[in-house]
């Protein structure tokens, strides 16, 4: 299905009711219409060509550039450095003991590769609003950063960001929500 076409249809239909909601609720008792507005009764307007009426909307398309290098320990599935996901309990930003080896491995790598930079991406499940979940995901990325800090990694090698609920998997139950409550370690250039 053509999505633009669908949207057009959807939104057209939606707007039907949007504007309907501006209804007056009190019954009108007056037998005829009346002029309820104040001020001028005649307007003359000459919009400038290409004025902000949206007639000249332009699209910006983003390139999908993505580096894809293979054959390093960070990508080796047998190396713990390829493990990048740290999962959290509900409403928690505590890094659990089971992830200690993972965090230690990345700390060791960062300490021996001072040029390496990581972005710790925090995530939240989709319950709640997008921006608030972005802030919640940030808490988790900060928690992972602090765990790396304790092991000696300096802040300049770590950036903490959040994807909030944007990478959530479209869950409907708690077992699934738990997969969305995580922080991902991403090396610069990946």
């Amino acid at each position: 299905m053509n999505n633009l076409t669908f949207n057009k249809k959807l939104l057209s239909t939606l707007m039907l009711a949007l504007v309907l909601t501006a209804c007056k609720s009190t019954p009108m008792t007056k037998p005829s219409i009346e002029d309820k507005s104040v001020g001028q009764n005649t307007t003359t307007t000459t919009p400038a060509a290409g004025a902000d009426d949206g007639s000249t909307v332009k699209e910006v398309s983003l390139d999908d550039a993505n580096a894809n290098d293979a054959g390093n320990p960070l990508k080796d599935p047998n190396n713990i450095l390829s493990k990048r996901n740290i999962y959290f309990d509900f409403d928690s930003d505590a890094v659990k003991a089971e992830y200690r080896p993972l965090v230690e491995a990345h700390a060791k790598y960062l300490l021996s590769h001072k040029d390496a930079r990581v972005i710790v991406q925090g995530n939240a499940d989709e319950r709640g609003t997008r921006e608030y979940n972005l802030a919640l995901g940030q808490r988790r990325s900060v928690a992972v950063k602090k765990a790396l800090n304790v092991l000696g990694v300096q802040d300049e090698q770590i950036e903490t960001v959040s994807y909030g609920e944007e990478k959530s998997t479209g869950c409907a139950d708690e077992a699934c929500f738990s997969k969305d409550r995580r922080a991902d370690i991403v090396y610069q250039g990946e």
Binding site: K8, E131, G164
Partner: peptide, 22 residues
């Protein structure tokens, strides 16, 4: 997307494989 308030005339302002919010 930007559309007229009646939903007509939807136009793409930005397209990306990564999320866009807010």
């Amino acid at each position: 997307q930007v559309a007229d308030a009646d939903g007509a005339n939807p136009r793409t302002m930005l397209s990306s494989k990564e999320p866009i919010i807010s």
